[in-house]
Design a protein around this nucleic acid. Structure first.
Ligand SMILES: NC(=O)c1ccc[n+]([C@@H]2O[C@H](COP(=O)([O-])OP(=O)(O)OC[C@H]3O[C@@H](n4cnc5c(N)ncnc54)[C@H](O)[C@@H]3O)[C@@H](O)[C@H]2O)c1
Ligand SMILES: NC(=O)c1ccc[n+]([C@@H]2O[C@H](COP(=O)([O-])OP(=O)(O)OC[C@H]3O[C@@H](n4cnc5c(N)ncnc54)[C@H](O)[C@@H]3O)[C@@H](O)[C@H]2O)c1
Lengths: 207, 207
DNA sequence: TGTACATTGTTATTTATTTCACACTACCTG
DNA sequence: CAGGTAGTGTGAAATAAATAACAATGTACA
């Protein structure tokens, strides 16, 4: 199971989301081409990904939805679950906190942090906001492993340092400041403007 | 300039953002390794990307920041600019509208749409909200080319159809429903849960 | 029951992207 | 103004990812 391609990891997450929907609708089996059509993928790609994670079916009635969810979950989740925190409770931080809660049983937002004293101790969607100064203590107490950064771009670098020092090993950066991290920390960056600009570029090509 | 790798397009957008910052700080020249270090890229990759877009410098004092911005802008922007709209003025839609406005001169959010009558005619960050029923008319009137979807997942498919019918050729989907579009429409998808799950996966590997 | 067919699993091939390696040259330094 | 250095530009090699091709096999149905 070692060395899954990074792209595959992303797709696994998406497959699972779709499979959970199927399950909710009472669908018990799904063909590779069905799963492919529900996304923008090809059936071969789906089969290949599924091969890579070591699941296979003897049936020719498609994959067992429940079983496939379980295999994917074994790869993505941990038994105990993983705790995350939002840093910067502004528009975006609030939106994510509200949206996220309860979506995934093994992935929880357990705290938010802000440096604005006004915001400390507020509760959003059941999640409490703490002063950023308490982060070291809370990372230990609540076993926070992932930091989701939604602070203003000019504070991104210093907040990153705070997070790394606090021992956080996974960072998702929504700030428009690109960051770099030590080897032992995993960083995922996402910049919305880049996404829009990519769309703009391709729209331009189509004219 | 045909056939730039897709990955390169994304990086160009990020280079430009950084270059604009440099320019604002009065920096006139930048080395490939400087630009690389400001992101998580290598100097070779930066040079390769810059080679692909046809810019080069005779100097050994690095690239001319201003000139490089111009070349990148020629690729990403159009002279007249491109107009975009937000569909679904909820938490996320509001956050993006507020955040985005004025960030890029050639990329404007000119309208938002919602099906909630309460929200119609409200103004957020200077952008007016229209009933979704008026979208066909407004796509023409305002020359909207890009639709940013932030509606609830269960309405994603029908909203997509509305957008495509209205003649929109570029779609950015923040909905957690995966979509597929006709050949002549460009679709970019981004699911936050997938990003967090990717981070979770890599954090797990590091334990 | 056996034949046609649909579907999976997997190896081989192709395509896309990154990295390496190095030629080339402007610039600095003495 | 020669020689060393630090930078760029780029063909070639390596790596990563997607696609094609097809053997194997369970299933439906005549
Ligand atoms: N809003 C969006 O849709 C959007 C989209 C793309 C990117 N972003 C990026 O996300 C970030 C936040 O955007 P926003 O619109 O939510 O901004 P915002 O100003 O609404 O929120 C920022 C929050 O961070 C807090 N903060 C500031 N410094 C802090 C620190 N050192 N420690 C802890 N908290 C701190 C502020 O008090 C505020 O609550 C920005 O970097 C922006 O570039 C936002
Ligand atoms: N909030 C987040 O941070 C976040 C993160 C990731 C993904 N998302 C996704 O973004 C989408 C929106 O999230 P949100 O938190 O802003 O939800 P929300 O419920 O706050 O907002 C949805 C908005 O869409 C409007 N709407 C509903 N049907 C519509 C239609 N047919 N046409 C036009 N407008 C319509 C609603 O009136 C509402 O204003 C969801 O699909 C969610 O999965 C949100």
């Amino acid at each position: 199971m070692n060395k899954l391609p990074e792209k595959t990891i992303g797709r696994l997450s998406e497959y699972r989301r779709t499979l959970l929907n199927c399950l909710a609708k009472g669908k018990t089996h799904i063909y590779s081409h069905e799963l492919a059509n529900l996304h923008n993928f090809t059936a071969v790609q789906v089969r290949r990904d599924i091969m890579l994670i070591g699941y296979s079916t003897t049936l020719k009635k498609g994959y067992d939805v429940k079983a496939l969810i379980d295999v994917i979950s074994k790869i993505i989740d941990t038994d105990e679950g993983i705790n995350a925190a939002i840093i910067g409770v502004g528009n975006l931080g609030k939106a994510i906190t509200t949206y996220f809660n309860g979506k995934r049983p093994k992935l929880r937002i357990v705290a938010t942090f802000d440096n604005d004293p006004e915001k400390a101790n507020r509760v959003i969607a059941g999640v409490k906001c703490y002063p950023i100064s308490e982060i070291n203590k809370l990372v230990n107490e609540l076993d926070i492993r992932i930091g989701i950064m939604t602070v203003p771009p000019e504070n991104a670098v210093s907040v990153l340092e705070t997070l790394v020092n606090a021992g956080i090993k996974g960072i998702l950066n929504y700030t428009s400041t690109p960051l770099s991290v030590p080897q032992n920390v995993h960083l995922e960056e996402y910049d919305m403007i880049t996404s829009i600009e990519k769309v703009a570029y391709f729209v331009k090509q189509k004219k």
